[in-house]
């Protein structure tokens, strides 16, 4: 059963020409799909369609999650600088009219799950990049979404921080198993995170190739050193280079 899907969607921005498509993508319950492609090919646009934040110029978007059942994590933490970590995480619940104390309690719980129980009172400017991203993740998880859209969430983080966060996202995902679409331009990250990697061609983005990888999640220790990981990463790197019209 697909949680959300795009069928032959095309997006045109006035005065800019075509930004995406025709493009197809579906994500099933409990599945993690990675979307890889050159920058500007329309990955963020595809996510906005799947989130229901934008309508396609042509084609069909199908979504099963109801209101408040989709969460998005952006490339930057996108926190309200004037609000504490706790208030930031409680935002989706507050907007949905959840009782204030109950919202705070659930937000504190979500912060604890991302390992930030000590930082509830901190403002975003007092957090490191990795911590701010975890707050953003807690805010996305606090509503227990059916569909989780991650738009290059690690792009601004250093290597160690992104590896820790990638492993933690799998652990958190395993608790409720939402459908996840993970956008990245890092091939190894895509192979680590997802059981299916969709490579897009340069703008306007279309599907260039799809690679199925090991479906076992969370990933076993040393997954990154396995032959399977290496060969999937190499195949996808070749696809990505070819999609940009270059030899690998």
């Amino acid at each position: 059963m697909s949680v959300a899907s795009l069928a032959a969607v095309e997006v045109e921005y006035p005065g800019r020409g075509k930004a995406l498509g025709p493009f197809d993508l579906a994500v099933a319950e409990g599945e993690i799909v990675a979307l890889v492609g050159p920058s500007g090919c329309g990955k963020s646009t595809a996510l906005r369609l799947l989130a229901g934040l934008e309508q396609p110029t042509r084609g069909t978007v199908s979504r099963t999650p109801g209101r408040g059942e989709t969460s998005v994590v952006f490339q930057s933490p996108t926190l309200m600088p004037w609000a504490s970590a706790l208030a930031n995480v409680a935002l989706p619940l507050d907007l949905a009219g959840v009782d204030k104390d109950e919202a705070r309690r659930q937000a504190a719980d979500a912060l604890a799950r991302v390992g930030l129980s000590g930082a509830t009172a901190a403002k975003p400017a007092q957090l490191s990049g990795g911590m701010a991203m975890r707050v953003s993740l807690a805010r996305a998880l606090v509503t227990e979404p059916k569909l989780l859209l991650l738009d290059e969430p690690f792009a601004a983080l250093d290597e160690i921080t992104r590896r820790d966060l990638a492993a933690d996202i799998h652990l958190l995902w395993a608790e409720t198993r939402p459908a996840v679409i993970f956008v990245t331009h890092n091939v190894e990250e895509a192979v680590y995170m997802a059981s299916r990697v969709v490579v897009m061609s340069a703008s306007p983005g279309r599907t260039f190739n799809i690679t199925w990888t090991d479906p076992v999640m969370p990933r076993p220790a040393h997954f990154r050193t396995t032959l399977e990981f290496r060969s999937a990463a190499e195949a996808i790197s070749r696809d990505l280079a070819a999609s940009m019209g270059r030899a690998a």
Binding site: T70, M80, L91, P92, L95
Partner: peptide, 23 residues
């Protein structure tokens, strides 16, 4: 992106004004 987040969670005009635009 914060505006999109408020869209995503179905914020009312008043919520958007008080909780996002004024601050």
């Amino acid at each position: 992106d914060l505006e999109r987040l408020f869209d995503l969670y179905g914020a009312t005009r008043w919520q958007r004004l008080r909780r996002l635009r004024i601050p």
